[in-house]
Design a protein around this nucleic acid. Structure first.
Lengths: 217, 217
DNA sequence: TTCGATGTGTAACTAAAGTTACAGAGAATA
DNA sequence: TATTCTCTGTAACTTTAGTTACACATCGAA
């Protein structure tokens, strides 16, 4: 085990010791594969075989749904303490992922092999709670996505998207292009520019090249 | 315990004995409250306190999301073997429901008090699997709803809705008005009539007063 | 049979979002 | 500095969906 991994182990303990019992943390260290993945890479892709589930130690992963080549939609973000719960039963059933997970901010992650999961559910109460909570949180975020798509106009959906992004990045100056926003919202660049201009006129944002400053959040 | 309830117990055993171990079924009978609810009534409403989770023995419940007075959206249906998994953690946390559940076809249901749930997760392997599976199924249905909203035109979304309805009712002659469809899709009656006419011209459906016959499913 | 309630058809219009096309600004690099 | 690439602004137009308004059909109850 190299020094980078033992560093990751420290991070695991640091955050998760308040959530998981010591025995569980020991188990995770025993069987988990620690990895660092740089921004821009895929954590998981649609159709990919799920043999491990990821436990995020740091960084941000954007979870997307993709219909085809040029139709996609950002759903939610994974941060420290999150796992892609949907991969869980998929794992057990040896199914394939229905999401793409793109690393937005370099992540440190532990991959846990599917075999241990079910065992841990029985063995560790905190693990049980963690998995159920994960499912629940994702479910709530899905409902949020549905509300946005069903009930909101694009302009407000976009503002919501921007504000969410501010929360995730901890930074109210977003480093993003109109095209990227359009991709995440399954809209088009021209429309996004139009709406952004309106938001700017309402003093909710300010625009710079490659940047958007969110005033109200 | 009256005769109706012992009848419901039979139904419980009948279907669930292949899923749950005998001890679990006994536990359910011990603490569950058996009930029959007629079509048109609410199984659960948004904001309602969740002290029990429902286990459907027969019938159909439509789960909806509501934004306000006249904005709502049908999400999915619960049938025999289903539970409203989202109510699960809500229960534990004493939260309130974020869904409405309307009985579409008279249901028979067992209500299980929240207190026993966590205990059973540890005690019964099949219960654990059941709860996780429930979350997972709902999650998949949400993704389906998202795909529909994000990527499909209303006409096709409506056809999908109608076909889903055929599956649920086991009946390709649907007893439904244009207004009801509009409500479930968060659209308007006039638009629905328009699209239905198009679908009819494409020979995918036939229209009658209060009825729609689905040809292709 | 009449009347009212409910359901459907359709036209005309409006609103929201997407598309095409092109101009021009800013940054990066030769 | 000139050239190229990426990003943004905007006009003009199309498509999709929602709204308003009204006619007419069907059904059941008075």
């Amino acid at each position: 085990m190299n020094s980078q991994n033992s560093n990751l182990q420290d991070k695991l303990s640091e955050y998760y010791s308040s959530i998981f019992e010591k025995e569980l943390i020991d188990d995770i260290i025993k069987v988990g594969r620690f990895e660092s993945i740089e921004s821009g890479n895929l954590l998981i892709d649609i159709g990919q075989d799920l043999t491990h589930i990821p436990l995020i130690l740091s960084g941000v992963v954007k979870i997307m749904r993709q219909e085809n080549e040029d139709e996609e939609l950002a759903l939610y973000y994974l941060e420290r303490g999150d796992t892609c719960a949907i991969s869980f039963v998929n794992c057990i059933d040896h199914k394939r992922s229905i999401f793409r997970g793109i690393v937005e901010k370099d992540v440190e992650v532990v991959f846990l092999p599917v075999e241990v999961i079910d065992d841990w559910l029985q063995k560790h109460k905190t693990w049980r709670r963690f998995i159920i909570d994960s499912y629940h949180l994702r479910l709530l975020e899905m409902v949020d996505a549905i509300d946005g798509l069903a009930f909101m106009k694009l302009k407000n959906r976009m503002l919501k998207y921007l504000i969410e992004k501010v929360k995730i990045t901890q930074e109210n100056i977003l480093d993003i292009t109109h095209q990227e926003i359009a991709n995440d919202l399954n809209s088009s660049r021209v429309v996004v520019s139009r709406m952004l201009k309106q938001l700017e006129q309402e003093n909710k944002i300010e625009m710079r090249r490659n940047k958007i400053i969110i005033e109200s959040f």
